[in-house]
């Protein structure tokens, strides 16, 4: 059998600590960050019956991170009796968004067509964002299930962004940028975002400038949001795995550097 090298040990170590921690189910508490609180307060401040567009702008690969984020957000919006319009600007987000929306709607006894509608996917996201600013029924003559837009009671008075309280883009990439550049800049619609952790720094300048109204993200953001709405979900549990993985990586960096500096001292600083 081939001898295991350091890389294999590192892989095995990561696998082991994540599995053990998940099995142990340790309860970790965490401070809620101001940005997550801001998003929570924003949703909380919307009047009952306000219509919000939730755009599933993500791909399937990021689902383990997106799912807890989306579920926490949808649970909060449904619990506040907001009317939701679900759309997807990336094809892969279409089916996922529909499942997540119907799942949470069922939890809160919401009725399709009255409390929420899922319009589905529209190709060419820039064109879709711009054309919804002119006319949502022209952009989506039918919903995801094939019913006419005009048949839904909830959509009778929704023509364009003027009738929408805000857009929340659930994204794993740069699609929220297009919502800001075209939706917010051109049509003054209030854009917020729920994004993966890797994308958060990308949107920091937009959040600081006020072009992005609110933002939270990552597994930590999902866990914080779950804490705020008082409903436990997969965010907190996944955060546990992420935390131990982070500690593991921090330790690996420290050990790697100790070995490096010891080796350098031994070589007289030549390496």
């Amino acid at each position: 059998m081939k001898r295991l090298n350091s890389r294999h040990w590192i892989f095995s170590g990561l696998f082991a600590i994540v599995v053990i921690t998940m099995a142990a189910n340790v309860n970790l508490d965490m401070r809620v960050s101001p940005e997550t609180e801001r998003m929570f307060n924003y949703i909380d401040s919307l009047p009952t019956g306000a219509t919000v567009i939730v755009s599933f702008d993500h791909e399937a690969s990021s689902l383990p991170e997106i799912r807890p984020i989306a579920l926490a957000l949808l649970r909060h919006t449904f619990s506040r009796d907001l009317n939701l319009i679900g759309i997807a600007l990336l094809a892969e987000g279409t089916g996922i968004g529909y499942r997540l929306m119907t799942q949470t709607a069922d939890e809160y006894d919401k009725t399709y067509g009255i409390d929420y509608v899922y319009l589905g996917f529209k190709p060419q996201y820039i064109a879709a964002i711009l054309s919804m600013g002119e006319s949502i029924p022209d952009t989506y003559p039918e919903d995801y299930l094939g019913y006419a837009y005009r048949d839904h009671e909830m959509l009778q008075n929704i023509k364009n962004y003027n009738d929408i309280a805000g857009v929340i883009s659930i994204a794993d990439g740069s699609l929220t940028t297009h919502w800001i550049e075209y939706g917010a800049s051109r049509y003054n619609v209030k854009v917020s975002a729920a994004v993966t952790a890797a994308m958060m720094t990308t949107y920091d300048p937009y959040l600081a400038s006020g072009q992005l109204h609110a933002m939270f993200g990552g597994l930590r953001g999902a866990a914080e949001y779950e804490k705020l709405i008082g409903i436990g979900g997969s965010g907190k549990r996944s955060m546990l795995a992420q935390s131990v993985a982070h500690i593991y990586v921090v330790l690996l960096i420290i050990v790697g550097n100790i070995i490096y500096f010891r080796g350098r001292r031994k070589d007289g600083g030549s390496s």
């Binding site: 590192i10 892989f11 791909e59 690969s61 990021s62 960096i253 050990v255």
Partner: peptide, 19 residues
């Protein structure tokens, strides 16, 4: 399949952080 491929990054990040 996509989630699995994406999750593999964690292992490579761990290895790269050490090496």
């Amino acid at each position: 399949m996509q989630s699995t491929v994406f999750a593999l990054l964690a292992f490579f990040v761990a290895s790269a952080s050490f090496r």
